[in-house]
Amino acid sequence: MNYKVRTSWQVTWSVWHAMFMREILARATGNRMAWFWMLFEPIAVIGLMVSIRTLVLGREQVVLNAEFIPWLIIGLMGFFLFRDNMMRLMGAVDANRGLFAYRQVKPIDSVIVRSLVEGSVRSFVFLLFIAAGMLLGMEMNPDTPLLAIWAWFSLWMFGFGIGLTLSAVNKLVPELGNIARLLSLPLLLVSGVIIPFSVVPYNLREYFLWNPIPHGLETLREGFFSSYPVADGVDLLYLWYWILVTLVLGLILHLRYEMRLKAK
């Protein structure tokens, strides 16, 4: 059998394909707890929030033009997409260290492939929740699917950008990585996932909107509920500024410090 020298595009494709198959296999067979948790966590948060809501607020509609539970599910799913990308990408380089012995495999490949896997798995789980919600008679079908997909993709890209940057930063300055890990829960609270933005006092909203995640989440919800009143100042373009900047930063770090990322 005669091997030909492949172009770098072919090599890249082979590497991504091989790593993707590997990661997805590891995810599917490896940690059963992770699958359970992936399904159970949103349900637990939803149960908790629904009981809090009925206890504190009574049965009135908190969010205009959107049922509370679908509203919550969509927000949680969007946030988890971001968070999982951010957190799991940080460990991608370490987990695949042995593979960098093959010169075709770069640290950034492990990050890219893991992000693809995370995105696929999260999208799958989201579709599962949508289907389940619709079977239970909730209004979970997106009114403007293209907008919803675009917002979903944007959140994914943001998670990828942050994860890419952090995967390099975590290796170069481990303290910063730890800080990022600690930020995950507070981020959930200030991103408008659980608490609707209409509750936030008007003069504080401006500061809440510095955080790019709500821009993606609100747009995602708008894609699902066409008459959902999106908070003023929500702009997907702002999220994309963040995406582009974090991507540039992450790529620069990976290119510049490739050898240090490979090193043990």
């Binding site: 091997y3 492949r6 072919q10 090599v11 082979s14 590497v15 394909h17 091989a18 790593m19 198959m21 590997r22 296999l25 590891a26 490896g30 695949n96 042995g98 593979l99 093959y102 075709q104 495999v105």
Partner: peptide, 18 residues
């Protein structure tokens, strides 16, 4: 990858080599 079987590791390398 220590947690994966020999077969899976071979498959991975074969895929990387195209």
């Amino acid at each position: 990858q220590g947690s994966m079987t020999g077969r899976q590791n071979v498959k991975f390398v074969a895929r990387v080599q195209g």
